[in-house]
Design a protein around this nucleic acid. Sequence first.
DNA 1: CCTTTTCTGAAACAAACGTTTCAGAATAAT
DNA 2: ATTATTCTGAAACGTTTGTTTCAGAAAAGG
Lengths: 192, 192
Amino acid sequence: MARNVEFDEALAIQKAMEVFWKKGYNGASLRDLTDAMQINSSSLYNTIGDKQELFVRCVQHYTDLRKLDWEKRLKSKKSPFATLVDYMHDAVNIIINGEDSCMAVKSAFEVATNDQRVKQILVADDQRSYQFLHDLISKAMDQGEIRADEDPALLADYFNSTWTGWYESYILHKDPVKIKRMAAYFIKQLSK
Amino acid sequence: MARNVEFDEALAIQKAMEVFWKKGYNGASLRDLTDAMQINSSSLYNTIGDKQELFVRCVQHYTDLRKLDWEKRLKSKKSPFATLVDYMHDAVNIIINGEDSCMAVKSAFEVATNDQRVKQILVADDQRSYQFLHDLISKAMDQGEIRADEDPALLADYFNSTWTGWYESYILHKDPVKIKRMAAYFIKQLSK
DNA sequence: CCTTTTCTGAAACAAACGTTTCAGAATAAT
DNA sequence: ATTATTCTGAAACGTTTGTTTCAGAAAAGG
């Protein structure tokens, strides 16, 4: 008996995510957001909610995309170690070619200490990332592709936390070679 | 022929730094800042300048403190490797016991992409950190304390970027053991 | 002590903030 | 076609933002 929502909510979230990604939570104003989403603030408040709720949805969306990527990679027909190397390679390219650093990392430092819902989403994301790495590392050890004298759980944690510093390094130095050399060193250490 | 500034500027910068450190640049309001500094905004604008200028001064102050710490450590009478291990140990304790993560890291992700002056200060800080590590690693190699088959420049870069991820990990998981195990693994890899 | 310069406190500033209101347009079901 | 319900756009809401103003208090130098 009534009208339907006019705008594409998924698309609007995507656009809002890009704004938050670039400007951060506090740096993005509601005008910035509604301009990008191409909707009126009344529509936003009627459907999604306030700024915090919108941010939560955007972070969720961001981590959903990563989840899909990991699931796809786990189905790869390459060997576990080759899949790991591919993943590392792609991640380095994202750091080097991306316009902004990882939204999950930025959000962890800016808002995860204050907003428990955001923190929870990021924790879940981090655990999936860990699981992905742990899976591949364990399999690679079983197949003798990487040395098996280390704890895969430790290696997964270590791997998982290594990226973040590379993002920071690239923000400061914009030096692709630096990142590539660190990645190569990391891979070399895993295998030997 | 006239009055002197009434407040202690160094102390005021220290207080402002603590606010920025905790809330970030965009999250800290001028009221938050002047409340902590215990000065009127007119005094702030007469002496230091606007919010951006104040932030620059705070980041500068933060990195000055780090510089002093590195200089002190370089004068240590312990061996280079022992100094490195001490440094790592202290850094882990700061991550675990500190109320907030590193202000340099937070600022890199929040403002270094927009504010060139802040970026410049952080780059200089990063280079000093690199130099500190490179010094110790080179000396430790010369003395046979760590294996000398790696490039000290690469190791210093790698070392330098490793911390950041540990801060993120601790924000999300608040797990001291996780951090300590990663630190132990790192040290073990250097020496063997 | 008096003058001159400077600093301080409180108030005010316009602009921007996140959010709400509401009349009217839109549309699904009757 | 009418009705009932919902969505949209523009405007306005009260706060808070960063910044400025200015009268008066403070004090160094003559």
